[in-house]
Amino acid sequence: MIAYIVRRALYAIPILIGVNIITFLLFFVVNTPDDMARMFLGQKHVTEVQIEDWKTERGYHNPLFYNAGAEGLDSFKETIFYTKSLRLFVFDFGRSDSGRDISFDISQRMWPSLAIAVPQLLIGLLVAITFALLIAFFRATYIDYWAVVICVALMSISSLFYIIGGQFVMGKLLRVVPISGFESGIFGIKFLILPVLIGVVGGIGSSTRWYRTIFLEEMNKDYVRTVRAKGIAEQTVLFRHVLRNALIPILTGVVVILPLLFMGSLITESFFGIPGLGSYTIDAINRQDFAIVRSMVFLGAVLYIIGLLLTDISYTVVDPRVRLS
């Protein structure tokens, strides 16, 4: 078990190197720092001096890989590759293009993201599983048929509609909750209700339909027939036997995204004005702050790999058949 986890962690290293190379290529080789400076400074008539200043301020003035002007090891250290890409491995994200400490921002902003994402995930899971169980109980009836049609219709609606519509109805017409904003502490809950609710409703169609498929697949298996042959009632069949088997794919499917919850949701956070990592990323994209986008790409990759590892481990926890080796 330990050996397995260590091996998987080691396997993550080449993947992170790969991610690093991809981002490096994207951010520094396809376009040079000069291009970025011009883009950032905006005007047509930028002087060379202005560009150099911009680059020096942000540490983009060094050569990409090899600094011929430096001595010894420094000729590798004083390069963009070393300062901007390799440092990511020790989670040293440096400063954003507008000069703020990225690590500090991240540590501040992940909590609001979690405050939205965690309840959204848990409530969504609970609601979807409940609905799916109900539908599975009424399988092959008109209830089942129309439930699936409604699910398909719900998942055909753009997430933007749920947000705009929800804000309009709940915040503007009914005025039950504030449309947007955020506050930490217990009074902040009123700001969380709407985004969490909308997130749950927006995801309900696809996840209910998916879980229904899992339940039905499970209900066609031989062991269910065995249980029925014992004279066990249908509800017990569903709850004690089918649910327990179906939860294996459902839970392990959830585990992979758990770490990514830190990253927050881009759309939800920006619509509701929540100062989380999602809106942080969006702002960075809109301001064309490459340093932040680069850091978030790397962070996302790390969290994804952790998610994969957690998935494998969770299999051994919930499925007695799986042993890691």
Binding site: I15, G18, G300, Y304
Partner: peptide, 13 residues
Amino acid sequence: TLNSVPGVLLIAA
């Protein structure tokens, strides 16, 4: 490797 980069961020970048 490609999968581990969050899709939206890769597109954004």
